[in-house]
Structure formats: structure tokens, C-alpha cells
Amino acid sequence: MQIAVASGKGGTGKTIISTSLALCAPGPVQYLDCDVEEPNGHIFLKPDLTSRERCTVIVPQILEEKCTYCGKCRDICRFNAITLFAKTIMTFPEMCHSCLGCFQVCSEGAIVRSEREIGVLEAGMAGNISFVHGRMRVGEAMGVPLLKAVKKKADQEALVIIDAPPGTSCPFVEAISDADYVILVTEPTPFGLHDLKLAVEVLVNFSKSCGVIINRADLGDARVEQWCQQQKIPVLLKIPFDRKVAEGYARGQTLVKIRPDLRPFLQALIQKVSA
């Protein structure tokens, strides 16, 4: 069972919800932080990170002594990662999408595998939660291969909680693509509603079941809830604004530590969406 916690809009409370869901899970549980650009789950769960792997993608390296400058590799590359001037050939590894087209077309054996590091994958235990996150290298543009590597660690035997990145483009889609249920965390503001609608549009395309948590539920208006009702999307939980939560969150405390009374609600929520 995989539950993804996503939002569209950033800063609505994905991480505070997903970390506490992991803490409330009944059996074996795994937390995958799929926001590889800005992973924050470790701040709250404080895992003991015991493994660390470099995450790399394959990029071409050209052996000039074998290259005949035929230009086939440049022609197949749709990402402008290979440029050819008369008798000089250059690669731009940061433009490369690792499609391996250039390796396939080179008939001279002049292209060999090199790699570009896109980030690191770290894992360990946080109490009884198996914790995995990816940290994208600063300056790297493509987070999706690292996100895929984090998802590959998913434990089939455990309840997997996925903390998804904000937005609605490719990293978001990749994060939710294998989820059995998606919890969308929003806030009752025009920004929250606008981005919630975009996220729901994607989930409908994927025929994903989803429900909504309204965070800071009293700092805004009723339009988010009305819209959810119209769309028949269940509102799973409403959490009012509470300075104590804001302060505890700021210090890196988990929601269930600050508000232990929410634990039964989160447990019930897991049960409901797992059913």
C-alpha cells in the first residue's frame, strides 16, 4: 500500500502531515521523501542515516581518437547535448537526458559511458520507520531520475508514505504515479484552491483516489470545502491554525508531538484510505 501526500501549492503542510502519518502507522512503515530538490522530512523524523549512495545518470564521453566526426550522434540528440564543429566534438553533460541514442548510432565505438552525479540517496531508521530520501545536487536541473531511485526503494511489505514535491509537473506526476491513494494537503485560500484544482486534474487523468486535508482551516474562506463537496472529494481532516503548531513545526517537532490529540484522527485516516 502506497499513500502519497501531495499538494500542488508549496508550503501547505505536506511534510508535517506525511511525517506524522508515518508515526501513526499501525504496522511496518516506510517514509520516502520524494521532494528531492528540498527534502525536509529528516528535520522532523531525525533518522539515523546509515546508508548513502551516489545517484548518477549515464552521459556520453567521446573518444576523439576513434571519432570520424560523422555527426550521427549530434543528429539523434534532441537535447543539444552534442555539438560538432569540423574536427571538434563537444558534449554538454548537463543537457543530456540519458536516452543513450548516441551510443546506439555510433558505428565507430567512439562513445563510452561516463556519468553525471545528480544527487545522493540516503537511508536509515527513524525509530521503527524505514526512512529514505534523495538530495539533489545544487545546480542539477533534473530531479526525476533521483526521485525514481528513491521510489525504487519502496518496500512492498510495508505501508509506504510518499512525501511528494510541490507543483503539478513531471516530478509531482512521478511521485504519485504508483500511489494507491493520494492525500492532497491544501489551505483555504485562493492560491490553495487554484493549485488544488490543478493537482486534482492530474489525479483524475490517472484515475487516482484522493482526499483532501485542509490545513490552517480557519485562515481563509469556505471555497475549498465547497469545491471539494461539489467534486465529491472527501475532506479527510481539517486542522485549524494554531500558533503552537506553527512554533513547534518551526523547531522541527512533529505534528503528533505538538498535538497528541490528533493521533487517533490520523490513525483513523490511514485506516480509511487503506480500505
Binding site: G10, D35, E37, M136, V138, A141, G143, P165, G167
Partner: peptide, 10 residues
């Protein structure tokens, strides 16, 4: 700008 540090931000 966008959140994060990935391709739209760069």
C-alpha cells in the same frame, strides 16, 4: 519564481 532548486528555478 518557482519553489525548489530544479529546472524551472535554474
Amino acid at each position: 519564481g518557482a519553489p525548489g532548486i530544479g529546472c524551472p528555478v535554474i
